[in-house]
Simulated assay, not measured.
Amino acid sequence: MSVHPDCGDIARRILRRRDQLGLSEGMLAHRAAMSPAYLRQLLCSGPEFDPPGFVRIAAVLGMAWPELLSGNRPDAPPGQTDTGRRGQLLRLTEPQCWELLGTRGVGRVGLPGSSAPVVLPVNYVVDDRTIAYRTAPGGAAAPADGSPVSFEVDRIDEHRSAGWSVLILGQAHPVDTSDEEQHLAALPGATPWAGGARPLWVRVRPAAVTGRRIDTG
């Protein structure tokens, strides 16, 4: 896992702005659609660990992306404190979330790890309001049946000032029947990144589906 060279400075800017707004750790985490533990993990790891997570944090705090990274406000004239464009965090409905997820794409699956959550990119398909992805048996993305899991899909523009993010919380269930495997394998976009003689399908059954859209107006 790579660490941003300025992650300590970024974390201090986030905490200072959080205090200015009178937000607790729990309030910031909730508004940015993450747990307090995951928020602390991001502050320690830096933006390269999860850029969309930091975009959501910046939107909650009303900070432009360059301001979050370096403390500079690019639109401010010398000697003034214009904050430039500020992101607005809008909630998405569950139908809007599924529409954005589409039928297939690339997302990040978060699984329990020995010392911290393990977040891995996978390509996925949507099947009857569930997420399914294919991986190598016994690999890092192959969880035990019933494991708690998060699944995030996002689209951020090149300046990271606008975009959307959908977060699914639920349980992971490895597929264990040939009929279900054949059904999933026949879906458009089901070609896996990881293979093998018989790749493992994992189905994520949601308990909660939430989404945020970042709009700079």
Rank of each mutant, 00 (worst) to 15 (best):
V109C: 01
A140E: 14
Y124A: 03
S165E: 01
Y133L: 07
Q171L: 11
V119I: 14
V126D: 10
T135L: 05
A144R: 15
L167Y: 11
S114R: 13
T135S: 03
W164Y: 11
Y124D: 04
V149K: 10
R160Y: 06
V153S: 09
G107N: 09
V119Y: 12
R155A: 10
D157F: 05
S147F: 04
P137I: 00
G110K: 10
I156D: 05
H173N: 07
A140S: 13
A136G: 04
V122T: 04
D145S: 15
L167V: 15
G170T: 09
A132W: 03
G138L: 05
V119N: 12
D145Q: 14
A132N: 09
A132C: 13
R155S: 10
P137F: 07
G107F: 04
R155T: 03
P117D: 05
V153I: 13
A142I: 04
P143C: 03
Y124L: 00
V149P: 04
V149Q: 06
S147W: 12
L169I: 10
S150N: 11
G170W: 04
E152S: 12
S161A: 13
R155Q: 12
L169P: 02
T135F: 07
G138D: 02
H159T: 12
T130Y: 02
W164S: 00
D145E: 15
R108D: 10
I131K: 14
V126P: 09
A142K: 01
I156H: 00
H173E: 13
G163K: 00
A116M: 07
D127P: 04
N123R: 15
A172K: 01
A116Q: 13
R160T: 05
Q171K: 15
R155V: 02
D128L: 04
G113N: 12
P117T: 07
D154V: 04
V119E: 14
P174N: 12
P137E: 03
T135H: 09
A140G: 10
T135G: 02
S161Q: 14
W164G: 01
A162F: 09
V166L: 07
P121H: 09
A116S: 14
S114Y: 10
G163C: 02
V109Q: 00
R108F: 11
A141N: 05
S147P: 06
A116I: 03
V122L: 01
A142N: 14
L120C: 06
A144C: 04
E152T: 15
A140M: 14
A136W: 09
A141K: 08
G110A: 13
P174F: 05
Q171I: 07
R108Q: 14
V166F: 04
E152D: 12
S114A: 14
G139R: 10
A162I: 01
S115M: 07
G139D: 12
A116D: 05
V122F: 04
T135M: 01
I168F: 07
P148R: 15
Y133Q: 10
G110S: 15
R160F: 00
P174S: 06
G139C: 03
V118N: 09
Y133R: 07
Y124K: 07
G163Q: 00
L169F: 11
D154M: 00
G110W: 10
P121M: 00
L111F: 07
P174V: 07
Q171F: 12
I131C: 11
T130E: 06
